[in-house]
Nucleic acid binder design. Structure first.
Lengths: 219, 219
DNA sequence: CAGTTTTTTGACCAGTTGGAAAAATGTTAG
DNA sequence: CTAACATTTTTCCAACTGGTCAAAAAACTG
């Protein structure tokens, strides 16, 4: 009943063009923010005229919504993947790795998200307070259990998650600053390996339970 | 010779109004980014008409430049304050504290900066590659010396600095997300104390030199 | 191929935005 | 008080922006 009529059967062209548009829009939105991006820019990047683009997405907002919606799914996957039955430090290490890979492989998505949050998250506040909060709460319980079992240093689990988000996404969101500071010699992908080493040291040593530092592991 | 004529003696009104404008502009720019902010918005926030505002700052760009310039000075102060003669872990701890305080007390400045970097730092690239890089390089030498002396775990000093920037500024730049995840109970300032505790644990334990973990301290 | 539907285009519009000009009003030093 | 200068307001404009609409062009269907 959603479409009113007998839902048109989405043509091949529709699928392709919509994909083109989203791809172009990701470029433009992530680089300029919502207000900074113009439909003309997106249309040009997608290789079509503005009215033509508007034939596929009725308004600017729709494109942005489609992007954000699509993003959030994959964005939270690494956190979802934390296994309550795994080894605490290994799980955290794996989580950091995955987040770092995402910053490396999907920097535009990260910046799109950062732009949105920076400007007060007007379009996704409900998601933050709902889905995201729930997921973090759920994983916090797991982390806290590990701490209770003495398998992880006792810290605030939610702030721990923030710290992981911050340090990993930094390499996508603040990329230009990172590059500028490291200098042109480091413009390769090596910085991600260096970052991984630092973060391992920081989080794995920093979070190792006290008794484990002498080799003993609590039940 | 900069002013052409015998440099006008900057009246009291000029000083006050410029201050008003910058204060208002910080609000508007930090919340909306450069392109997202309009002169009208800033003018209204500053309690004056648009043409009146333009009497003090000839163009939008000038306001933004003035803000950024002013910001960067204070922004880097905490890093400058790292004392080569201090105790490594204490210096790092103090640095984290200061950065966290800045995130708490000057979130708008942090977001202004974040907005600029996110969008490719078009206006301050030279500063990043110059002043900022130089300062980071200088402090990296100090950090590396501490590591050589066995007073600090061996990590990449520049990525260590990134990690401190990321984790502290996160509380300003991603404030809405942090609040959303923590929920309304934590809307007070307590989150900064919790963050400080986590970061202490993470950085101080994570960076303690190996031999120090058994109580011994290298010269 | 003729008819139908989908896609693309070109012209257009109303609202917003950055900014200019000039006239009007305030302020202040002499 | 008044001339000189500083400040403010009013009016205006050209460029840009999101979005509409009808007609033209393709694409598909039987």
């Amino acid at each position: 009943m959603a479409k009113g009529k007998t839902a048109r059967p989405v043509t091949r062209i529709q699928r392709e063009k919509r994909e083109q548009i989203l791809e172009a829009a990701l470029d433009v939105f992530s680089a300029n923010g919502f207000r900074g991006a113009t439909i003309d820019q997106i249309a040009e990047a997608a290789g079509m005229s503005k009215p033509n683009l508007l034939y596929y997405f009725g308004r600017k907002d729709d494109i942005h919504k489609a992007l954000i919606g699509r993003l959030l799914d994959t964005w939270l996957d690494p956190l979802r993947a934390i296994d309550p039955n795994g080894d605490p430090l290994s799980e955290i290490r794996a989580y950091i790795r995955r987040k770092l890979e995402m910053a490396r492989d999907y920097p535009r998505e990260s910046r799109l998200f950062a732009n949105e949050i920076l400007q007060g998250a007007p379009r996704i506040m409900d998601l933050l307070e709902g889905e995201l909060k729930d997921l973090v709460d759920e994983k916090s319980v797991i982390l806290r259990r590990w701490m209770d079992q003495g398998r992880l240093a006792r810290v605030d689990p939610r702030h721990l998650i923030f710290a992981i988000w911050a340090t990993t996404q930094h390499y996508a969101d603040f990329d230009v600053q990172v590059r500028a500071v490291l200098g042109p010699d480091f413009s390769g992908e090596g910085r991600f390996d260096d970052a991984a080493r630092l973060l391992d040291q920081l989080f794995l040593t920093g979070l190792a339970p006290k008794n484990a530092r002498h080799g003993e592991l609590a039940k």
